[in-house]
């Protein structure tokens, strides 16, 4: 589903991503972890071209993301992206945050879009918040709306960039629950997170990054059960 080949990304003289080679199969849930500044978010952001790459190649469902001919707006509809800061549109209600993409990008009739949006809000128990503005919602509620806003496009891949880092402790659970549920449906997911709870429960694979490189790419069981690489051990002990 996702294939990354010899990917390099420079910010000026700084090499943020260095010779990344990796694959994600359909339905896999990959957790990206590693110290801050290791390039996790940058890697995630190159996948939907929010971040242009320097050299290399990224293919999503067989499409070269960075080729000239690709319709990036069309491709991005298949790739849900969830930000750390939720990034709901503050001038629109929770409902309209979901509806606007459907009516303006997919040109769906308004009543059909509203129906789909309400069904999604119901899925995350937020129907009663439909007509509230983002500023009136808690962080956890905003992030759940942001997640279903992406789901409204029925994407094939969901990317999460530290989705719980900005949340208070008591709200992290509700967002992780939604993500676990999503993983269980067979969604292809990549998630940058420090939540090893989520990795333990829902991930298939774990990528450990350091200084712009993927230094460990292994399945979950191997990662958490006395992985021989001492850097994995160091990382696990540093976050616990």
């Amino acid at each position: 589903m996702i294939s990354i080949q010899s990917l390099n990304k420079d910010f000026g003289a700084f090499r943020a991503l260095s010779d990344i080679n990796a694959r994600v199969e359909k339905g896999e849930v990959v957790v990206l972890c590693g110290p801050s500044g290791s390039g996790k978010s940058t890697l995630l952001r190159t996948l939907n071209r929010l971040e242009p790459i320097t050299t290399g190649r990224i293919e999503i469902a067989g499409v070269d993301v960075n080729s000239r001919g690709v319709d990036i707006n069309k491709l991005r509809q298949k790739i849900g992206f969830v930000f750390q800061q939720y990034n709901l549109f503050p001038h629109l209600t929770a409902l309209d945050n979901i509806v606007i993409g459907l009516t303006k990008i997919l040109k769906m009739p308004r009543d059909e879009a509203t129906k789909r949006a309400m069904a999604l809000l119901e899925r995350v128990n937020l129907t009663r918040r439909a007509s509230n503005y983002p500023a009136q919602l808690s962080g956890g509620e905003q992030q759940r709306v942001a997640i279903v806003r992406s789901l409204a496009f029925q994407p094939e891949i969901m990317l999460f960039d530290e989705p719980t880092s900005a949340l208070d402790a008591e709200m992290i659970g509700e967002v992780l629950a939604l993500m676990r549920e999503l993983a269980a449906t067979g969604m292809t997911m990549m998630c940058v997170t420090h939540e090893m709870r989520f990795a333990r429960e829902a991930a298939d694979r774990v990528w450990l990054m350091e200084k712009g490189k993927i230094i460990v790419d292994t399945d979950k069981a191997a990662f958490f059960n006395s992985h021989p690489n001492e850097r994995v051990q160091r990382f696990l002990s540093s976050i616990n």
Partner: peptide, 14 residues
């Protein structure tokens, strides 16, 4: 915030 624009582009807005 600049991320408002990013969020819109990431959804597939031109």
């Amino acid at each position: 915030p600049k991320v408002q624009f990013e969020a819109a582009r990431a959804m597939g807005f031109t």
